[in-house]
Computed example of a mutant assay.
Amino acid sequence: MRIGIDLGGTKIEGVVLADSGAPLFRQRVASPSHNYDNIIDAIASMVAQFEREIGRQATVGVGTPGAPSIHSGLMKNANSTVINGKPLKADLEQALNREVRLANDANCFALSEAVDGAGSGQQVVFGVILGTGVGGGLVVDNQPLLGRNFLGGEWGHNPLPGANEHRRCYCGSSDCIETYLCGSGLLRSAKRLNPAIESTHDL
């Protein structure tokens, strides 16, 4: 059996898949996105709960924003900035006492759609994630195009054409696509158009 974990800036969601690929259990919890140790603990707790349900140990794969550096193995380019500069894969393997497969979440999403989803049968598939951050994955002939830095297909930190609000991005640039199309960016734009919108209305 396999356990898949989606680590996001807002939530952590997991699923247990039978050997056939059929989903057996799902769980979603709020992401402790501002505390790295709590993220590790939340994932470990979710895996432990799943394995109590199935009565056996399973393999674990984690989709995460950003990607590990090919030189140091430390995370980079994650909108959940608390994991940047951290050995996420190694820390998860220590917490779970087994090998963990870790990959960029947008690449996972795009590959899934290319193999057996909306892009099935297409030579080139570009998948876009709009959420707490903005990500993208590019798949050619059912193979993810990772690029030399494992960030092939990422587009959220290109400048938004015509933008001039000088929105600062965590990457250090201004007016990145992500600052307009992520959840908080869309809310900011909506409030500019209608100041009566309350900040408690999350997108």
Results as ranks from 00 to 15, higher is better:
170 Y>P: 00
21 G>H: 11
26 R>Q: 02
17 L>S: 07
118 A>K: 08
68 P>A: 09
21 G>W: 05
179 T>L: 01
164 N>Y: 10
90 A>E: 06
60 V>D: 09
179 T>F: 00
139 V>C: 05
11 K>P: 03
60 V>C: 13
168 R>K: 07
178 E>F: 00
56 R>A: 09
171 C>P: 06
200 T>C: 08
40 I>K: 13
164 N>Q: 15
14 G>Y: 01
177 I>A: 06
44 A>H: 06
160 L>P: 04
167 R>H: 09
86 K>L: 14
109 F>C: 11
72 S>V: 04
191 K>D: 04
37 D>V: 06
183 G>R: 00
87 P>W: 04
143 Q>K: 05
101 R>I: 14
198 E>A: 05
167 R>V: 06
109 F>P: 05
180 Y>N: 01
147 G>E: 02
154 E>Y: 05
30 A>C: 02
121 G>L: 07
40 I>Y: 03
120 S>I: 15
46 M>R: 06
197 I>C: 06
15 V>E: 04
3 I>C: 08
96 L>N: 08
15 V>Q: 08
192 R>G: 01
197 I>E: 07
122 Q>Y: 15
158 N>A: 04
125 V>L: 15
51 E>C: 07
77 N>F: 13
39 I>S: 07
148 R>E: 12
144 P>V: 14
46 M>E: 03
62 V>G: 10
203 L>N: 02
186 L>V: 03
36 Y>T: 11
65 P>R: 00
40 I>L: 15
101 R>N: 14
83 I>P: 04
152 G>F: 08
127 G>D: 00
179 T>K: 00
103 A>M: 03
165 E>V: 07
99 E>S: 15
162 G>R: 12
140 V>P: 03
17 L>H: 03
188 R>C: 12
141 D>Y: 05
40 I>S: 13
46 M>Y: 07
62 V>T: 03
59 T>A: 10
178 E>S: 07
126 F>S: 08
137 G>T: 11
58 A>N: 08
81 T>N: 01
145 L>N: 08
188 R>E: 05
78 A>R: 03
33 S>H: 13
53 E>V: 02
132 T>A: 00
109 F>R: 12
192 R>S: 13
130 L>R: 00
4 G>F: 13
110 A>D: 07
70 I>S: 10
116 D>T: 10
169 C>E: 01
87 P>A: 02
57 Q>R: 15
151 L>D: 13
178 E>I: 01
179 T>D: 00
139 V>K: 11
194 N>G: 10
78 A>S: 14
84 N>K: 10
94 Q>E: 09
60 V>M: 03
55 G>N: 04
91 D>N: 15
119 G>M: 11
1 M>K: 03
171 C>H: 12
41 D>W: 03
170 Y>M: 03
72 S>T: 15
31 S>M: 09
51 E>Y: 11
25 F>W: 10
13 E>Y: 05
62 V>F: 08
128 V>F: 04
84 N>V: 12
154 E>K: 09
202 D>S: 05
158 N>G: 02
34 H>Q: 15
37 D>K: 14
137 G>L: 03
49 Q>H: 14
53 E>N: 14
105 D>M: 02
132 T>Q: 01
95 A>Q: 14
2 R>H: 14
28 R>P: 10
5 I>L: 07
